[in-house]
Every structure is written in C-alpha cells, then in structure tokens.
Design a protein around this nucleic acid. Structure first.
Length: 276
DNA sequence: AAAGCCGCCAACCGCTCCTCG
DNA sequence: GCGAGGAGCGGTTGGCGGCTT
C-alpha cells in the first residue's frame, strides 16, 4: 500500500465550482484534455497578428479548403482545425463586429426556438455573424434571459425544430396565399453571407432575390401585406432556392429539409402575429 | 488594496458526417 | 461496401478583465 500517493480529487460538480477550487487552492489550470493534434510542435493558444496575416494572405491567394495543408503551405505551426476556425470566426471578410442588435437578437431567439442548438444553421440566417459568436451570445445572454411566448431556450432537443405537423400547418396556410411575382423581389440590400461568388448568373440572382424577399419580410423591412402581395404559385421552388442558395451543394439534405420547415414555421409564426 | 468571484469570448476537443480511393 | 482522412459542428475550456466583498 502506497501511503504517500494522494488520491485523485473528486470530479468537480460544475465548472464554476471547479474554478473556485482552483482559485482557492492556487492549483495549476486543469489540463486534462488531450490536444487534437498529436503532432509535436503544433502551436496552440491565441493567434498573433503575424499568424493572422500569414493565414489571411494565403487564403486570399489560394482560397479556402484543404485546411490540413494550409498550415504548412502558409508557414504556420497550427493544426488545420485551428486555421479553419480562425479564418471562419475572425479573419473571413464580411464578419460583423460589435454588439448583437435587438433585431439580430429577436432573430436568434426565433431561430433557436425552431432549430435548437444548431448554431451553424442559425448563423447562416444572420449575415456577418458566426456560429461561435451566436453560441457564445446565447449561452452568456439569452439562456439566462426570460423570454416571452414560452420560448424554450436552454438546450432543447434538436428534433424540436422540424415538427412535421407544424410544417404541414404552415404549408396549408401558404397554399392559400396569393401569387408570387419575381419583379417584386428586386434586391436592394446587400447579399451578406450568401454572396460567395462575384460571377452571379441569372439563376443565382433569382435565388438571391428570393432570399432578399424573405429576409426583408423576416427582418420586418417590408410589411406583411407587401410580402403577401407577391406571386407564391411556385412557392416550394422559391423557398427551396432560398434555402439551397445559402448552403453549399454538399449540405446534408436533412438539414435543408429542417431549415425549410423552420422557415415555413417562422413564416406562420410571424403571419399569425401580424394578422392579429 | 487584495483576494475571490463572475462573465465574456476566443480557442480547443471530440464526435459525426462526407468524400474519395 | 468499406476504410481513411478531411471538414464541419456543438459542447467545453482557459484566459482575462471587471466587479464584489
């Protein structure tokens, strides 16, 4: 029996408790995690301005993708994941800095109600904001905040978002709407996160117009009556284009379906609210 | 003034999904 | 069909600054 060996500390009850213990006992930081890259010499921690420049210059010259090779090619001693995260959350063009606006917060709440903790999907609907930013904002602000209308906001199940009954209800409502007229959907606002190519074709322009129409309604830049004063005869295609237009072609189909359901449900939600 | 506590957020980790050979 | 490797996602952690006691 080894009497000198101290037993391992019991697992912390919570992060806060853990931190309190650490501070009180002046323990070294708890570093139980293994690094994601087993490679020796891979740098971790905060990025320096020089690293940012190297990464940004490389991606501007060669484009995104092949993250595992980016670090080598760009002369960075970082793992590919770290490069990707840094680019997506900080260096990427069109990243919106500063506080979340009230409109954005409303949007986050609504989307979270429908989609749950699917931060990337939510971020895809809020131009200039990243999934990490929205997730942090939710966990540090909205999760504690009392929300109206019985919003469920602390980690609901993923399945809660794509209720087929809700979707069916929305589709019933939409089937009675007037016709869609593409001319009403002239894009005036910027394309935000959706625009990834400078060589937009006519088809792409149509997608973005659909998206703009939707976003204008969604962000209440146009009224319900203006929104309804359009031709929705081709509704499914319109909304499908809106959704697919925001994603890469490799996006999992169930995500597209879930998002389609979510947009329909949001529409029903807003319409009910505005009609009343 | 100093120690402890708390909140924010950038960054990391592990898991899952996707693609390709 | 299967396995390996890459990419993406959500949960979690650590550092730091501000606030409280």
């Amino acid at each position: 029996m080894n009497m000198t060996q101290t037993p391992p500390p019991p697992p912390p009850h919570s992060r806060k408790q853990c931190r309190r213990d650490r501070d009180r006992l002046s323990l070294i930081p708890i570093m139980g995690r293994r690094p994601c890259c087993s490679k020796e010499g891979v740098k971790r921690g905060p990025w320096t301005a020089q690293e940012d420049k190297l990464l940004a210059d490389y991606i501007r010259a060669h484009g995104e993708g092949k993250w595992s090779s980016v670090s080598k090619q760009a002369g960075l001693k970082r793992c590919g994941k770290s490069c990707r995260l840094r680019w997506l959350n900080y260096l990427r063009p069109n990243i919106k800095r500063g506080n979340i606006t009230q409109d954005e917060e409303d949007l986050i709440i609504r989307l979270h109600k429908l989609l749950g903790n699917r931060w990337s999907l939510i971020a895809g609907r809020i131009p200039g904001r990243t999934d990490n930013e929205i997730k942090n904002y939710w966990n540090s602000n909205l999760c504690k905040k009392p929300l109206p209308n019985n919003f469920v906001h602390c980690r609901p199940s993923k399945e809660a978002s794509s209720d087929p009954q809700q979707l069916s209800k929305a589709e019933d409502k939409l089937s009675n709407l007037p016709k869609y007229n593409n001319q009403n959907a002239e894009s005036e606002c910027s394309e935000g996160s959706l625009s990834s190519s400078s060589s937009a074709t006519t088809r792409e322009e149509e997608d973005y117009s659909s998206h703009d129409l939707w976003m204008n309604f969604y962000t209440r830049e146009i009224s319900l009556s203006q929104f309804l004063d359009t031709d929705f005869s081709n509704l499914s295609n319109v909304f499908a284009e809106v959704i697919v237009g925001g994603y890469s072609s490799t996006k999992a189909m169930h995500d597209v379906e879930a998002d389609f359901g979510a947009q329909m449900a949001v529409f029903t939600d807003l319409a009910d609210e505005w009609i009343m």
